[in-house]
């Protein structure tokens, strides 16, 4: 039964990829990318990698679609024809695929209990992490403690992505927020017929003035607090179930972005200012790095949480709690900064 599910999901995955490659409408491509992420998240679930699946669903399907769409508002929504035939690229891809298949020939079988990945480091993670690190979710133990330094690296990667975007795009002309009123429909008929061609329709969609969307606003008001609450749950429940700082930050950010989309980017910016976000992003990295430094001052190695408290397990618990908080704050701030940066740019001035 499980192999049937796998086969169906994988074939959907292939179809989606081919469709993404073929399609020239970027809007559709982004939607398909979201579907691709959802399918791979489902595949991860069938492989019992729920943490990865959760991240993939939150990041791939959720926030990256929003960010891509808001980036799309700055450019054309139709891909240009490439000036040359992409045969060399095709050749490279085919060769890479062939080599990959060749490389899997001597791989241990998937799920084989005797394969090296199950018999070497994993043994200690599974057997000893409950009394060495503490959290029932072993993934959290590995990510936050055994390999906590990699996670610090990834946090800085996210930070870098945010400041790179602001450094490159943030300081050109700002968009003046003019409220577009809805035109009566008969006047726009001819426009609508073209709209699928040049894709202008989309740009207006994303900056919908919420004033006329009573239903959206009410539902938004109902759900945004719940989304934020759920983000906090994911943040603090990561020790016990799937979740943690990355997913929580992304979900929290999507709550804020939803607010900005339904009400107005400018209103959202007054609530959560870009300057405050910048400081939050910095604070996130500092919390993480700071925990490491404090460990050093207390006599341990960098990120050795054991020394944070009299009892090593309590120390581990405190350390993991703090660094997850740092990750969550950083990811949240960077995601919203990215959205602001795209939303603030005037169309066509890239």
């Amino acid at each position: 039964m499980e192999s049937v599910v796998d086969i169906v999901l994988l074939s959907f995955l292939c179809i989606t990829v081919v469709a993404i490659v073929y399609i020239r409408k970027l809007f559709c491509a982004i939607m398909l990318l979201g579907i691709f992420s959802l399918l791979s998240a489902s595949l991860f679930v069938t492989m019992d990698a729920v943490d990865v699946a959760f991240t993939e669903a939150a990041v791939g399907t959720g926030i990256s679609s929003i960010l891509l769409l808001s980036a799309l508002a700055l450019t054309h929504t139709r891909e240009q024809r490439p000036p040359h035939q992409p045969y060399i690229a095709l050749l490279v891809v085919v060769v890479t695929g062939a080599v990959l298949i060749y490389g899997t020939m001597d791989l241990p079988r998937f799920g084989d209990p005797n394969s090296p990945i199950h018999r070497h480091v994993a043994v200690r993670y599974i057997a000893d992490s409950p009394h060495e690190v503490g959290p029932p979710n072993i993934v959290t133990s590995v990510l936050a403690s055994y390999r906590g330094y990699d996670t610090l690296g990834e946090t800085v990667v996210i930070f870098t992505a945010g400041i790179a975007l602001v450094g490159l795009l943030g300081f050109r002309r700002r968009q003046e927020f003019k409220v577009r009123l809805y035109q009566p429909m008969d006047k726009k008929t001819s426009y609508a017929e073209n709209s699928t061609e040049d894709g202008d329709e989309f740009e207006d969609n994303i900056k919908l003035p919420g004033a006329n969307h009573m239903v959206l606003r009410i539902v938004g008001k109902m759900f945004i607090p719940l989304i934020l609450l759920f983000a906090l749950y994911v943040q603090f429940h990561g020790d016990y179930g799937p979740g943690g700082g990355f997913q929580a930050g992304v979900i929290f950010a999507s709550g804020i972005i939803l607010y900005a989309l339904i009400f107005d980017v400018e209103t959202a910016m007054r609530v959560i200012t870009p300057k405050g976000l910048r400081l939050l992003a910095v604070a996130g990295v500092f919390i993480y790095g700071g925990v490491g430094l404090v460990c050093m001052f207390l006599g341990g190695n960098f990120l050795d949480y054991n020394v944070l408290s009299a009892h090593p397990l309590h120390g581990q618990h405190l350390g993991i709690f703090l660094i997850e908080l740092g990750v969550g704050i950083n990811v949240f701030a960077i995601m919203v900064i990215m959205f602001y940066t795209f939303a603030n740019r005037k169309r066509g001035s890239v």
Binding site: M185, D186, K188, A192, S195, E201, L208, N212, H213
Partner: peptide, 10 residues
């Protein structure tokens, strides 16, 4: 549906 209507989809 509302957006489509106001955008002139008949």
């Amino acid at each position: 549906a509302k957006t489509a209507l106001f955008k002139g989809q008949k």
